[in-house]
Amino acid sequence: MTPRDWLVLAVLCLDAVVLGVVQLMFLPLSFDGYLLPNLGGFPLPLMALLAAVTTPWLVSVAGSLSDRLAVALAPLAAWILTIAVVGMFGPGGDVLLTADVRSLVLFACGALPSAIVLGRVLANSITAPR
Score class of each variant (00 low, 15 high):
residue 14 L to K: 01
residue 36 L to H: 05
residue 96 L to W: 15
residue 95 V to H: 07
residue 17 V to E: 07
residue 38 N to K: 05
residue 66 S to L: 03
residue 43 P to E: 03
residue 119 G to Y: 04
residue 22 V to P: 05
residue 128 A to F: 00
residue 18 V to E: 00
residue 35 L to N: 11
residue 54 T to C: 14
residue 100 D to R: 09
residue 9 L to T: 06
residue 46 L to A: 15
residue 77 A to F: 08
residue 50 L to M: 14
residue 87 G to T: 02
residue 17 V to F: 13
residue 73 L to H: 01
residue 101 V to G: 00
residue 80 I to G: 03
residue 67 D to F: 12
residue 23 Q to M: 14
residue 104 L to F: 11
residue 79 W to Q: 07
residue 63 G to P: 03
residue 117 V to Q: 11
residue 88 M to R: 14
residue 50 L to H: 04
residue 20 G to P: 04
residue 90 G to Y: 01
residue 82 T to F: 04
residue 130 R to V: 12
residue 86 V to E: 10
residue 62 A to L: 01
residue 61 V to K: 13
residue 111 A to H: 00
residue 118 L to R: 06
residue 41 G to H: 09
residue 25 M to N: 10
residue 130 R to W: 10
residue 113 P to I: 01
residue 11 V to Y: 06
residue 106 L to P: 02
residue 33 G to K: 10
residue 123 A to K: 12
residue 50 L to S: 13
residue 57 W to A: 15
residue 85 V to H: 03
residue 107 F to R: 06
residue 24 L to H: 02
residue 55 T to D: 01
residue 39 L to D: 02
residue 78 A to C: 08
residue 112 L to E: 01
residue 36 L to Y: 04
residue 110 G to A: 08
residue 28 P to V: 06
residue 98 T to P: 02
residue 85 V to F: 12
residue 26 F to I: 00
residue 28 P to G: 07
residue 107 F to P: 00
residue 96 L to E: 02
residue 105 V to A: 15
residue 85 V to L: 15
residue 98 T to W: 07
residue 18 V to T: 11
residue 75 P to M: 10
residue 92 G to Q: 07
residue 11 V to H: 08
residue 30 S to N: 12
residue 2 T to F: 06
residue 14 L to G: 12
residue 95 V to N: 10
residue 81 L to D: 02
residue 108 A to E: 03
residue 18 V to Y: 06
residue 66 S to P: 06
residue 61 V to L: 15
residue 55 T to S: 00
residue 80 I to S: 11
residue 124 N to G: 13
residue 23 Q to W: 00
residue 97 L to R: 07
residue 49 L to C: 04
residue 26 F to W: 13
residue 20 G to K: 04
residue 23 Q to R: 09
residue 65 L to M: 10
residue 69 L to N: 04
